[in-house]
Design a protein around this nucleic acid. Structure first.
Lengths: 189, 189
DNA sequence: ACGCTAGACGCAATGAATTTGCTTTAAAGT
DNA sequence: ACTTTAAAGCAAATTCATTGCGTCTAGCGT
């Protein structure tokens, strides 16, 4: 159990900032536990005891950075809200650092709790958007549907096929979900 | 560059089998490079020089195991083909070992080549199914659409939300893609 | 307010893994 | 067959991960 305050909290904070600083300075792949420990002013054994290994520590830091810091902007209509959110999501997640954070969050994650947290963050944001739309009287799909039709394809491509991924693709996913005039998008896509 | 034949090929093969054997014997998490080297009859430095680190080696082996060994079965109609394939895909990938392989493939993958290969395997299988359907005269979505609507949601949930994932969910994805009678599935889902 | 207790940290020693310079082997090209 | 050169073997040196033990302090009860 991690104690909420006092020295434990200071250690946790200084280790986390050490990770972020060093990741920016020497690159994420060059990080080592002793290096982080020295920057944070603690001994390596403290980190090993508390986090187990480097990957779990990185996973911890990654989840913190993947937490959205602000509610999604209100554009006055569901399509605009969802499109803007999807574009921003793609933009943040598909960057080199974003992908590294996602991978770290997935990686050092014995029980799957950290990855589930990431997914919960996205679901929360979408829920806010859908609730606003419902209050306006708009008809909306369920959160799970948006997760399946928008978030999943974005994340899949970010992880497995990072090439040729742009805002137009994100917009197309939202459009396909909200305006199903044609049955399927063109096969050429 | 890896030489295609002779000693290099023998080393590669013996290292790969050593990884598989030892993973089965002592568990994937207990693997170490020196252990693998000894079993394979090579020196650790050989592995480090060729693969860089344990994760890249595991990623290599994982991709090999994720390659489908057989063409998808022909059930005579697109919905049955896709449903059966999706159920089998989910079954294989959501098992403990399947998830471990996916994570390994994603992890030790600096350039994204291994992950792209996994995605290509799925796309290949789907392409076979769609081509058969087209030859039968059935109307089919494009490969990319199936990837977005079926493969992506399955993989996203396997990675981020492994709970409450069953064959019914996989069937629902295929149904939603092929029979869009209702606009969206129920919000309760 | 004061001491008690348990969890967390520092220190140091131990053992294992990684890295590296140099030599030797054996594919691939001529 | 000879030359070239990438890859493997070997061994030393470095770095990292792990663990036992003593100390400190946050949280708690009195």
């Amino acid at each position: 159990m991690v104690r909420p305050g006092g020295r434990s909290a200071r250690v946790q904070a200084s280790v986390h900032t050490a990770v972020r600083e060093l990741a920016a300075e020497v690159g994420r792949d060059a990080l080592t536990v002793p290096m982080i420990a020295q920057r944070a002013g603690v001994t390596p054994s403290t980190i090993y005891r508390r986090w187990g290994d480097l990957q779990e520590l990185l996973s911890d830091v990654a989840v913190e950075r993947l937490r959205p810091d602000t509610a999604p902007r209100d554009h006055g209509a569901l399509p605009a809200d969802l499109t803007a959110w999807a574009e921003q999501f793609l933009d943040e997640m598909s960057s080199a650092s974003g992908r590294a954070y996602i991978r770290d969050a997935l990686l050092g994650d014995p029980d799957g709790g950290n990855a589930g947290q990431c997914s919960a963050y996205a679901a929360e944001q979408i829920d806010v958007i859908l609730n606003r739309a419902t209050e306006r009287g708009e008809e909306t799909p369920g959160v799970e549907t948006v997760m399946d039709r928008v978030v999943s394809p974005l994340m899949y491509r970010i992880l497995f096929r990072p090439d040729g991924l742009d805002a137009a693709y994100a917009r197309g996913l939202v459009t396909g979900l909200l305006d199903p005039t044609g049955r399927w998008p063109g096969k050429a896509a």
